Simulated scan of single mutants.
Amino acid sequence: MDFTLPEEHRMMRESVRDFCEAEIAPIAQDIEDDHRFPAEVFDALADLDVMGVPIAEEWGGLGGDQLLYALVTEELGRVSGSIGLSYAAHVSLASKPIELFGTDEQRERWLRPLAEGEYLGAWALTEPGSGSDASDMDTTAERDGDEWVLNGTKQFITNANVAGSVLVKAVTDPGAGYDGISTFIVDPEADDGMTVTNVWDKMGLNASPTCELQFDDCRLPADRLLGEEGDGWEQTKKTLDGGRISIAALSVGLAQGAFEAAREYATEREQFGQPIGKFDAVRDMVVGMDRKIERARLLTHKAATMYDDGEDVRRLSSLAKLDASEIAREVAEDAVQVLGGYGYTTDFAPQRFYRDAKLMEIGEGTSEIQRLVLGRELGL
């Protein structure tokens, strides 16, 4: 749908694509093999001024819209799911809530360095015993004079061991249900009591750190409360409306990368005297991949545009996330099949896209939860 994109969006996409081809593609498999977080890539992305694409210029961001942010995320995912995931978590989950719900003092102190790319951010919601039921959390924050005291464990937290700030969800009123959850800003360097207790080895996305966090009497000044006490769950739902669009965009990028690898192979690899793409079975598979990607991209762009127009996007963001994440896995699996034995080796990219794509159906609400959300939106 290039013809519908504003000129500045197309220019930014091309700029990021050129960067990805030159700086990320050559190391994409190596950083996965080494389980290495590529800090230098994010320093370079800061130099490109894309670490705060949808954040207002007033707070150090680019002042772009959700559609522009989706395009950047897709381009990163097209070459590296890990870099795309850490980027999306930094922007949608760790930065945007401070802009939406913070005071001007909090935006200046905590949002500006995130948007300018001084460091990455993280967002801590999930716990060892609460996955899809994220509201059933055991982490608590108790008021003690002019401080809040955090205790508990958070699980599967992207960027936590490389973050300069972490937004933490905690129960401040155990008897209030959803209205008893609040959000706090934690400084990993300055706040005693927060420990990274595990960095997980995963099926894929191993250049994006996924951590377990432990809070033991972690004391925070009163001004670290984001928004009002008890607003945490409403903040979470609004944050995920945008976050799911970014995961949809990342999924489209993963699918596009896998598709391009398959198409290139199908035009170059010969069997029985002709390129394998000339055979119906392979051709139809590649054509099907292209069709699915275009569908997911259109849905993602529609959700992003509605978000920018200030409309309620709960249904569209869930639709986009559900469709794009499942398409990413399907397309990546087909790409492995097109390459045959070579597709199963780490010398070729499809295996990496295949492994990376699976998380898209799990993170920020599983496919099953998206169907639940969509059913509710339809009154079912």
Rank of each mutant, 00 (worst) to 15 (best):
E40H: 14
D65V: 00
D43N: 09
E118I: 10
D146V: 05
P54H: 03
K96I: 11
D133Q: 08
L125W: 05
W148A: 05
H90Q: 12
D43V: 06
L120V: 15
E74D: 08
E58D: 12
Y69I: 01
G52S: 10
R112N: 07
S130N: 12
G131E: 04
V72I: 10
E118Y: 07
G84M: 10
P128Q: 02
T73I: 07
D136E: 13
L76F: 09
G102A: 08
G152E: 02
T126H: 11
G117K: 08
T140L: 11
P38Y: 07
L62V: 09
S132M: 15
G117A: 12
L62I: 09
R112Y: 11
R143T: 00
S80D: 03
D65I: 00
S95P: 03
D138C: 07
E57P: 02
A122S: 15
V50Y: 03
I55K: 00
S86H: 07
L68H: 04
A56C: 02
E108N: 07
A88Y: 06
G131L: 08
G131K: 01
P97D: 01
P38K: 11
E116S: 13
V79R: 13
G131M: 03
D65M: 03
F101W: 00
I98Y: 00
W148F: 14
I83Q: 06
G81E: 00
E142M: 10
A115F: 05
A39M: 11
W59C: 03
E118M: 06
K96T: 13
P38I: 11
A115S: 09
E127S: 04
E147K: 07
G117Q: 09
V91H: 04
K96E: 14
S80G: 08
T126Q: 09
L71I: 11
M137F: 00
I55Y: 07
G61L: 10
M51R: 07
L93A: 14
G52Y: 03
R78H: 11
E118K: 12
E99Y: 09
A124G: 12
G129Y: 12
